[in-house]
Design a protein around this nucleic acid. Sequence first.
DNA 1: GTCCGATCTGGACAGCGTTTAGATAGCGCA
DNA 2: TGCGCTATCTAAACGCTGTCCAGATCGGAC
Lengths: 226, 226
Amino acid sequence: MADDATTAQRASRRPPPAEAAKPYHHGDLSRALVSAGRRILETEGPDALSLRAVAREAGVSPAAPYHHFKDKGELLDAVAAEGWAELGDAIARARAEAASPAVAVTEIGVAYIRFARENPALYRIMYRMACDRKTMPEHAKKAEGGIGQVAEAILAAGAQPTSALDLQLIQIAAWCTAHGIAEMVGFKEFEELKEELGGEEAFVRAVLGHVGILSGTARAMLQAKT
Amino acid sequence: MADDATTAQRASRRPPPAEAAKPYHHGDLSRALVSAGRRILETEGPDALSLRAVAREAGVSPAAPYHHFKDKGELLDAVAAEGWAELGDAIARARAEAASPAVAVTEIGVAYIRFARENPALYRIMYRMACDRKTMPEHAKKAEGGIGQVAEAILAAGAQPTSALDLQLIQIAAWCTAHGIAEMVGFKEFEELKEELGGEEAFVRAVLGHVGILSGTARAMLQAKT
DNA sequence: GTCCGATCTGGACAGCGTTTAGATAGCGCA
DNA sequence: TGCGCTATCTAAACGCTGTCCAGATCGGAC
């Protein structure tokens, strides 16, 4: 086994091999550190995610990560970026699998919230990083597999925004709503109600059903009635 | 000055004096610790809020707080509870000052978000505690000066929920939305857009305007159209 | 074949949350 | 008035953390 690795590495191209079992000088650590971080996040929660723990998990000294990330924060940023990419995929999948454009927006919301609930520690880090640092990872904004999907889905559902700004605000409102629900669904207060409604997803759909993301036209219509 | 304090304390009733400058054995520390915590939160941010820093700020040894709170978490809980009480007051004020019942719900939302934005570190702690611990402070739930206000305001605005459950879901949806916007308004992504709209509050109102919290009847109406 | 530069280690530092043993001092009781 | 009780506070210590440094290691370029 060790022989295999050594041989494979010796036969490889000039740059350090991208995937080897436990290669080389130490291999490509940055990737190993990020996935070690995710592993810790999943198994031990966000509070256990220390730089030292990550290094330990990856089998290197506590100082080693500093040759790949200037900071603990930068490592967390890399972990978060991976999370955003996966969230984007989940959103794209939900949109593709939606029964009709009309329900796609809701399904995207449900998928977003489900992702956050299935990866609570990851989502916490993702939000934390998006909040503190200046830019979101590009993945999160891109149309293919990103938040940009929301605008498209809203348009496909037949909404008629009065301007580009209107559309942008719709998008932001949808995102804020999803984030808010995602973070609050876990509150212990709602445990009873969730059970009454038949599970967490039912609860999420019920809450989502009480939030209307309104384009300019729909909003005007609603105001005319009230 | 020291004389004043000593005299006042000696003349006081049996139980330890509630308000003295720097009294006694050490005075009523728990209160001092909580306000020291808030001071640190405001001046140095949430990351600087260590138990030791709080003790230092209050002028006691690092072990002293353990006679009043079993945990760092319990101290944070106390700080958060104070925050919830103040948020409740802000909500009540917004409702009382609203021009009409129809706009009260929006004004409550704006007040909620403004509080979160003006006390970002405090709000972070408040949410964190509400998330991790089992129960919200009673203050937050009470009708006078609490989230319960939302339901009343919604009813006063003329909404016609189809059931108690419907009303509860409306309330939760509103809360989730406010929380989501409150946390995301700070994103650097929106800086440009905020400026374009003429400030953060304008941005908040614009986003809020694109979210409709729908009672059962209003929802049915909207669905009939789409 | 020799050197360079990237990578990794071991050790150190200050700061953290928490526990323990011991000092201090107000209160109830005699 | 004085004595002990108990709540409160301190000093010191533990293992943990993020971060930095000097030195060891080793692949790749000349």
